[in-house]
Design a protein around this nucleic acid. Structure first.
Lengths: 230, 230
DNA sequence: GATCCTACTGCCAGAAACTGACAGCAGGCC
DNA sequence: GGCCTGCTGTCAGTTTCTGGCAGTAGGATC
C-alpha cells in the first residue's frame, strides 16, 4: 500500500472512532510502525485535519474536516442495505419506511454504477417468524427518547402485578422476540428494563428528563458492564 | 510538495473545473511534469475517482468520488444505525467494518446536529448468542456474487454425502443461525440452497455467470414465490 | 513521588517510490 | 495530413519513505 492511499485510509479509520484511539492501535490496523503513524498524523495535521492527540489518551478527529469522505464502497453499500432489510423485516412500519427512505436518499447521491449495486443487492434476511405483538406504540417511544420526555406507564411485572411508574426512557433494545425499553424508574430509583408487550398503557408527558440520554446510556452501560463499540 | 499532498490538491483542483482541462494546464498549476500528472491521474482513478479524459479535450472529474452533503430525518438515521448495529453484531468482521465505515462516512456529511443524533443513537440490538461458525469465507462469496463469478464447491448434503459442484451464486441469506447461499447448480440444473457450514471447500473460478444476478434472483423469486419489496 | 500509558522528536541506513525526459502510439478535429 | 491531446514504456538519478532505537514530556493513577 502506498503512502497516499494510506493517508486517506487513516482519515477514514479515524472517522470510525468516537473515543480516543491510541497510535499503536491505529498503526496496527494500518500495518505500519508507530513511528510512521506519527509521521502520517503530522502530515494530515499539516494539511488541515483537526486531529487532536494527547499523551495518555490517544487521537480524536474533530469533525468539520478539510475534505468530505470518499464515496461508499460496494461492501459498505451491501452492509447498509442488509441492515436496512433487517430493520424492514424485524421492526415496525415506521422504522421500515424510514429505512426505505434512507436508502432512497443514499441512492440519490450515488453514481450510477453504485446505485445499481444498491438496487440489485442480493444479501437477504429472513422475514420475521411471527410479527412481534405489542400494544405499545414504539414509534412514540422512540420519539420520547429523542425528545427526552418522561413516560408514565402501566407495567405488568413477571408476577402479573401491575404498577404505574414514571420512567426516563433512554434506549430501546431490539431482540429476536421482544422489544425491551431501558429506562430510569422513578418508582424504584434505579435502572429498569421493560418488555414492550407488558406495557399496558403509556402516556408521553411533557416533562423533560434532567439528563441526556447519552449520559443515562453511559451510566447504564457502566452499571451493567456492557461493552460495545457501535 | 510531497506526492500525497499533491494528490489531494489535484482532486480539489479538478473539482474547481467544470469544463475539460488539459493535462498540461493541470501539470503547470501543480508544478510537475506532464508525465507525472498522468501518473497522478492514474493513481486517483485506481482509488475510484471517475476522471474522464479524452484525447483532444482534457479531463473532467465526474461527481461521485466524494460524498456530497446529505440530509436525513432523525428516524431515518435511527433506522440506518439500528440496521448497521445488527450487521455488526450478527455477520462477519468484514461486513462489520463496512457497516462502521459506512456510518462514519454518512456522519461526516451530515450537519452537526444530525451527526450528534447519529452518534448518540440508542436503539440497540442483542449481540449474537454464539458466533456463527463456518469455514466458508463469506467475504469471498459476496465478492464472487458481485463480480458474477462461478464457484466450485465441495458440499456435504443432509445425508452426509459429499459432492463437487459448479454453481452460479446470486444471493446470500442471513438467517438467525445459518447463512444460506442461493445459487444455480450446474450439477442439478436447478436452483439450490447451500448452507454455509456444509460447504467444505470453495474455489472462486474466473468464469463469468452468463446471467446477471438480478435475473437469477428474479427467476428464483418467481420459482419460490418469494415476495419482497426491499 | 513513583509508575504507567501514551504522544512526540531526532537520527540513520536501507528500501521503496517518485520523477522527468524521451520516444512512440492513438483518437478526434480541422 | 497536421494539430492537439491522452496515454504508455523505459530508465537512471533523486527523493522520499520506513522502521528501529533512544530519549523527552504530559497526564492519570496509585
Amino acid at each position: 500500500m502506498t503512502r497516499s492511499t494510506r493517508l486517506l485510509d487513516l482519515i477514514q479509520l479515524l472517522r470510525t472512532y468516537r473515543r480516543p484511539v491510541s497510535g499503536a492501535a491505529l498503526a496496527q490496523r494500518l500495518g505500519i510502525s508507530i513511528r510512521t503513524l506519527y509521521r502520517d498524523i503530522a502530515t494530515l495535521q499539516a494539511q488541515g485535519a483537526d486531529i487532536q492527540g494527547a499523551p495518555g489518551f490517544g487521537y480524536v478527529l474533530k469533525p468539520g474536516f478539510l475534505m468530505p469522505p470518499m464515496m461508499l464502497s460496494e461492501e459498505e453499500i451491501e452492509a447498509l442495505v442488509l441492515g436496512a432489510r433487517w430493520v424492514a423485516a424485524r421492526t415496525d412500519d415506521e422504522l421500515k419506511d424510514a429505512a426505505r427512505n434512507a436508502l432512497a436518499k443514499i441512492a440519490a447521491v450515488l453514481p450510477a454504477d453504485l446505485r445499481r449495486e444498491l438496487e440489485t443487492n442480493s444479501l437477504l434476511v429472513s422475514s420475521a417468524r411471527k410479527p412481534v405483538v405489542g400494544i405499545t406504540d414504539l414509534a412514540a417511544v422512540r420519539e420520547a427518547i429523542r425528545q427526552g420526555f418522561k413516560l408514565d406507564i402501566g407495567y405488568a411485572d413477571i408476577n402479573g402485578r401491575s404498577t404505574n411508574r414514571r420512567i426516563w426512557p433512554f434506549a430501546l433494545g431490539y431482540f429476536e422476540e421482544t422489544r425491551v425499553l431501558a429506562a430510569w424508574c422513578e418508582l424504584r430509583e434505579d435502572f429498569r428494563h421493560f418488555r414492550a408487550e407488558r406495557i399496558a398503557s403509556m402516556i408521553v408527558t411533557d416533562i423533560r428528563v434532567p439528563q441526556t440520554r447519552g449520559h443515562l446510556l453511559a451510566e447504564w452501560r457502566r452499571v451493567h458492564n456492557v461493552k460495545s463499540d457501535m
